[in-house]
Amino acid sequence: MSEKPTIRITYCTQCQWLLRAGWMAQELLSTFGTDLGEVTLVPGTGGIFTISCNDVLVWERKRDGGFPDAAKLKQLVRDVIDPDRDLGHADRKTHKKTDPA
């Protein structure tokens, strides 16, 4: 059995982004639940805000322009851990399953 995916959210303490990081962790845990091995909050400085899944950088505030909304974040994480997973209403407009026809 393979290990469960891990999420790492690094946030800037100077910018007071702990609540944002905590909210995003909560959103991921409520969606993926026991499919995740852990969600870790890592304090940093200098305006950092990154989210990685299994050491894959899925969001970087400076690179990606701000912060993801909850639906976007869930899609990015899903694409790393289980690309075929349907996220329900958070997925309706963007994630299309491949039509074999």
Rank of each mutant, 00 (worst) to 15 (best):
L29A: 02
F67M: 15
P5V: 03
L18R: 06
A25P: 10
A25D: 08
I48P: 01
C15E: 10
P43L: 01
Q16M: 08
Q14M: 09
N54L: 02
D99Q: 12
L36F: 13
L28N: 06
G65F: 04
G65R: 14
L57R: 04
T98K: 11
L41P: 09
W59S: 03
P100V: 05
R85C: 04
S30P: 04
K4Y: 02
V80K: 00
K4A: 15
C53F: 00
D79K: 09
L29H: 03
V80H: 02
D86L: 10
P68G: 01
A70D: 15
G37S: 05
R20K: 13
D86C: 11
T10I: 11
R85D: 05
L41N: 10
D69Q: 03
H95V: 13
G46N: 11
G88V: 11
D99K: 13
L29C: 06
S2V: 02
D79V: 00
D79Q: 09
D91M: 04
H95I: 13
Q16H: 10
G47C: 07
W59C: 03
R85Q: 13
K97L: 13
D86P: 13
D84C: 00
D35Q: 07
L87R: 01
E3A: 11
L36D: 09
K4C: 09
L18E: 14
T45E: 07
V58R: 01
I51W: 02
A21S: 08
F32R: 12
I48T: 15
S52I: 06
D64H: 12
W23A: 13
A101G: 11
E60V: 05
G22F: 12
R63M: 07
P5G: 11
K96N: 08
W23C: 04
Q16V: 02
G88S: 06
H95C: 05
V42D: 14
H89K: 09
R61L: 00
M1D: 07
C53W: 00
G44H: 07
K62G: 03
G37N: 03
A25Q: 15
G44T: 01
A25I: 01
K4S: 08
T31C: 08
A71I: 01
V42W: 08
D55E: 12
R20M: 14
E27H: 07
E27M: 15
L73F: 07
P43N: 06
K96W: 03
V77H: 05
F32Q: 10
K96F: 04
A21I: 06
A101E: 07
C53D: 02
D79I: 01
T40M: 13
K97R: 11
G44K: 01
P43V: 00
G44M: 02
L18P: 08
D86E: 07
L57Y: 06
K97T: 08
R63W: 01
A21P: 04
I7D: 06
I7A: 03
G65T: 05
R61K: 09
T98D: 10
V56K: 00
T10F: 02
R85N: 05
E27R: 14
G37L: 04
A71F: 05
W23S: 12
A25S: 15
S52P: 14
Q16P: 00
C15Y: 06
L36R: 04
Q26C: 03
K96A: 09
T50W: 00
